[in-house]
Design a protein around this nucleic acid. Structure first.
Lengths: 378, 378
DNA sequence: TCCACTTCCTTCGATGTCGAAGATAAAGGG
DNA sequence: CCCTTTATCTTCGACATCGAAGGAAGTGGA
């Protein structure tokens, strides 16, 4: 079952406020939405009749009458979201508050091309829906992250380096043909940033780094994902100063990614005679206090930090959140922090927090849910 | 005479659309505002009765009935704006469309402290108002740019390096005490960026560089000035790679400003035996094809360009506009462009325009007008 | 010249939103 | 226990906005 969400006008805003947990009573909605209490009551009544909201007991008093607690009806609908990687896809179903109902990981070779990959994805969605969601609960939207740049205007993948066969493929149109619903297609680092943003309430400007096999980055500006022309957020192909000279996959010399990514560290460790397969192996080595590994992670952190100095001075974020598998190596974030604090303007670092990402492994899925909810409630 | 603008609700949006020249008929307003044509007519009627708009003949037909042209009444009001520099202030009066009525430059030592400087400014405003504006035309807002960081929450100057005595001074409160009106206080580079943005219609993401004695930068993100926590836009204290080592006024080594600013070039030329007083002198030397000067400007441009590569990849702007007195030296922008195009991701430079600033010497005043208009019409 | 067509603008009834006032329901204090 | 205070929620008249319909004023073609 699939169905566009039947909301209009102010109802969407109200539903969003309840969905995100920002408000849970009519009075709270009135405060946050800017609408008059009377209008809120009317719209809430409609939403309850439409089966999207339910009243659920009463909340805690703030000194006067207890509010009647509102929450999303579990039958209001679900969102199907995914995050495509090179060799596997992480996918799940979320309720309309963006909370995961199911999450699973399936093997999935993105190199097999868009049709095969997206059909595999859709089949997995349908299976999960059949297994986990009563037929009466409708699907309200579909979204996926892809490991490449997405043109925000057309929702096509553009000049992706790691997605052979995907260039200029109309991902959104293909999904919409199967699900006649709001569809979201977004770069994976951007999704992660959007997901991470929900874990930092009150912070309007975030940089979110994903340090894993590669290095990705997304930016939240004034509370909204910054897309630029579709290529925003790249920091991996910035030139770093170095004695040696390394050629990056992008064709340039001395890109950050060629020095500080998980892949680069694995290669460097191999040169030093230490055999590691995955990025998680580096983290293990660091935890075992293998000096080569620790030193290399530290150098990588410093290099990332040096690139960040430019961006922190310019963008002046509230938070730099560091995620990705390599972020589990403690020295990484420490050395990023050291480099940034040493070199940035005091004014820019005064209230800056450089911290591990909070949203966990499902950050991208949560971000997809967050962005998709906006589309669903538009 | 001073007076808050008596607009409410949708009237502000409509007035702004006419003021900025975006629309000049009821039909155009309906298209751009999203309001129904009927609502537009009602509000316009009110604005005309309030003396803020006037009907002025008819416009050109687009195939049907000719529109009745609307424009701002010249009696609707004026804005008083200024841009404070270290040794002089540029100030002027704008009409509500943001167009300058008078602009002049007065000597003004910012080091004499906030009270003296702001009083001098206010006196100049009052004089201009008395000389150039009929008493029946009210002042609607006051704004000024300052050469230092401004906390966007409090409109105080924070830790300014070139404004002794100004730290934490409540500039806005001081101005509001004299003019009980909407007041704007903003960093000068940010004002310039806001002004430049009006010269690039349709472009939502801009970086605006001001290369003069120092190096300043402002960013327009999704059409709005990016302030961050008040320190956003700095690029001058980014470390550049260099054989030598120079200490910058900020205490760090090898800041961009210590190599590529007008002041740095003047010092370098002096070392090379060429005596220059002002930044404009460098431009003259370049125009006279003095090899040392041209070479130095080219190197400065390349260094600025190298810093920009990081920001262009990350921020992915539509336009990098280069202004400031040194931008008149042709090789500067050429070498910036070369460095950026050579090193940035193709996707980021595909539609990127790196061009001289268009807004001219009054950019900051125009920007103040643009931002102030938003405050006046809030 | 006439007429179809486009665009501009206004009129009018339906609907959404607002704010004030009041009803409801609890907390806290004598 | 009653009364005051505080907060929540609803009722109701005033006002803003909308969309449909139509009048006004042009264009362009037969």
């Amino acid at each position: 079952m699939k169905q566009r969400l039947p909301v209009q006008g102010a109802q969407g805003d109200l539903l969003r406020l309840v969905a995100t947990g920002a408000a849970e009573s009519r009075a709270g909605l009135a405060r946050l939405s800017g609408l008059a209490a009377s209008s809120v009551s009317l719209r809430v009544e409609e939403l309850i009749e439409a089966g999207l909201l339910v009243e659920e007991g009463s909340g805690t008093s703030r000194g006067g009458r207890r509010p009647r607690r509102l929450c999303l009806s579990p039958t209001a609908g679900v969102l199907a979201v995914a995050d495509l990687g090179a060799h596997h896809a992480r996918l799940g179903l979320l309720d309309l508050s963006g909370a995961p109902l199911v999450v699973e990981e399936v093997p999935c070779e993105i190199a097999e091309g868009p049709e095969a990959t997206l059909d595999l994805l859709s089949d997995a969605f349908d299976r999960l829906l059949a297994e986990r969601v009563p037929p009466s609960v409708p699907l309200r939207g579909v979204g996926t992250g892809v490991p490449g740049p997405v043109d925000p205007a057309t929702l096509r993948v553009v000049t992706p380096s790691r997605m052979p066969g995907w260039n200029d493929f109309p991902v959104a149109d293909h999904l919409r043909a199967r699900y006649d619903l709001p569809v979201l297609v977004e770069n994976d680092a951007n999704l992660m940033a959007a997901g991470e943003a929900r874990s930092w309430p009150g912070r309007e400007n975030l940089m979110v780094l994903k340090v894993g096999t590669g290095i990705g980055c997304g930016a939240i500006v004034d509370g909204r994902l910054h897309r630029g022309r579709g290529a925003a957020g790249d920091i991996s192909h910035v030139r770093v100063s170095s004695d040696s000279s390394v050629i990056c996959a992008c064709g340039h010399h001395d890109c950050l990614e060629a020095y500080a990514s998980g892949a680069a560290l694995i290669a460097a460790l191999a040169d030093a005679g230490v055999e590691v397969r995955h990025t998680s192996g580096i983290v293990d080595l660091v935890n075992d206090a293998v000096p080569e590994a620790t030193s290399m992670v530290r150098t990588a952190g410093r290099r990332i930090g040096e690139v960040l100095t430019v961006l922190v001075n310019f963008f002046n974020p509230d938070v730099v959140a560091v995620g990705g598998s390599l972020s589990a190596a403690e020295p990484l974030i420490t050395s990023i922090r050291a480099a940034v604090y040493e070199r940035c303007l005091p004014l820019a670092t005064r209230d800056l927090e450089i911290a591990p990402a909070r949203a966990g492994r499902d950050a991208a899925l949560l971000g997809a849910g967050s962005l998709l909810l906006d589309a669903v409630l538009a």
